[in-house]
């Protein structure tokens, strides 16, 4: 053995790697993409007739250009919307002014009473996007709560813990039927 090799000073190495770390922290973004999923209706084919829906099966929700909410024919509060939507979709007492139900054979669940109710959402071109999202969120919350309840009754588990097949069954028993009407143009064209 000849000369002894002097020990390498590795203290600055951590400085360099810290520099790299900071660089990556700055140029990258943590994946935070979440959102409310929706499905648009397919484009209208010529000669297609919109299906007739009985009046009792429609729950009309309107938002005007001043971000006021209207349902049941009167100005309503965002907080009340969720309960009202749940009541409309579930119709627990089978009232005659709330939607009818049809018996559908759902896999895994047997025959279920599926509501024929449709929530019709109409907004103005001047409605703010935030308000629109809040209303969508409340309606989704109503549907999600009902799915959660059914899931707990049928599978004794939370909806989020279900497998794909079970989830599809629940979705079929409680469909997310929100229809969006053509918007009004009171708040200008922009």
């Amino acid at each position: 053995m000849g000369k002894k090799c002097p020990e390498l000073n590795s203290g600055s190495m951590s400085d360099i790697s810290f520099l790299l770390l900071t660089f990556f922290l700055l140029v990258s973004s943590i994946n935070t993409d979440m959102g409310i999923p929706r499905r648009l209706p397919p484009p209208i084919q010529p000669g297609m007739v919109p299906p007739e829906v009985h009046k009792r099966n429609i729950f009309v929700v309107k938002i005007n250009s001043q971000n006021n909410l209207l349902f049941d024919g009167q100005i309503g509060d965002l907080k009340a919307l969720r309960d009202r939507a749940k009541e409309f979709l579930s119709n627990p007492q089978n009232l005659s002014n709330l939607p009818e139900k049809e018996t559908v054979d759902v896999p895994l669940l047997g025959s279920m009473q599926v509501s024929k109710g449709v929530i019709s959402l109409q907004n103005d071109r001047g409605t703010s996007y935030d308000m629109y999202i809040q209303v969508q969120n409340e309606l989704m919350a109503a549907i999600n709560e009902m799915r959660e309840d059914l899931s707990l009754v049928k599978f004794q588990r939370s909806y989020s813990e279900l497998g794909n097949e079970q989830r599809a069954a629940i979705d079929k028993a409680i469909p997310a039927s929100i229809s969006e009407a053509e918007p009004t143009k009171v708040g200008g064209n922009k």
Binding site: T32, D33, M34, G35, I36, P37, R38, R39, L40, P41, P42, P43, N123, D124, R125, G126, T127, S128, Y129, D130, Y132, I133, Q136, N137, P183, G187, G188, N189, K190
Partner: peptide, 30 residues
């Protein structure tokens, strides 16, 4: 979309997406 934009532009986008049959949609929110 920014939360302060008006629905007009969003409606136009949605109509355009429908026309090209891009029907799966997600509104990004936090």
């Amino acid at each position: 979309a920014d939360k302060d934009v008006r629905m007009g532009i969003i409606v136009d986008i949605k109509q355009e997406l429908r026309n090209v049959n891009a029907l799966k949609l997600i509104y990004t929110t936090s």
